[in-house]
């Protein structure tokens, strides 16, 4: 399992997404995000700057995480989407669900 890089910036937790969130890696990402949320993280920022591929399996993970964090009245933001990945979020309507922004600072400001 690829361990995701996690940083704390104030109250927020920033998790760096892997290069690809596909059917194979989605499980690992899901486990780590949900574990973090269960452990009390309620301001989550997903850093996509190094990611360039997300399939529907990946989308499902973020939806799971989002639902989970909402239940805890937490917040979640996404930044640094690659053009292609943004399209994937856009086509599936995910851009209406998450705050999707350009930079880390903007993401932190959303929370």
């Amino acid at each position: 399992m690829e361990i995701l890089e996690v940083r704390k910036v104030g109250e927020a937790t920033i998790v760096k997404m892997p290069k690809s969130v596909d059917s194979n890696t989605a499980g690992d990402v899901e486990t780590q995000l949900l574990t973090a949320i269960k452990a009390g993280v309620n301001k989550l920022v997903c850093d996509f700057t190094e990611n360039n591929y997300v399939s529907s399996a990946g989308l499902r993970v973020f939806m799971e995480a989002f639902n989970e964090i909402e239940e805890k009245n937490g917040k979640m933001a996404i930044f640094g989407l690659h053009e292609v990945v943004y399209e994937v979020f856009d086509i599936t309507g995910f851009t209406d669900v998450f705050p999707i922004v350009g930079s880390e600072q903007e993401a932190l400001d959303c929370l």
Binding site: S55, S56, A57, L59, R60, M63, E64, F66, N67, V88, I91, T92, G93, V97
Partner: peptide, 13 residues
């Protein structure tokens, strides 16, 4: 699986 999930994202893509 969840209320907000419309599903079928894959085929949509």
């Amino acid at each position: 699986r969840q209320k907000r999930t419309v599903g079928g994202w894959g085929i949509q893509l």
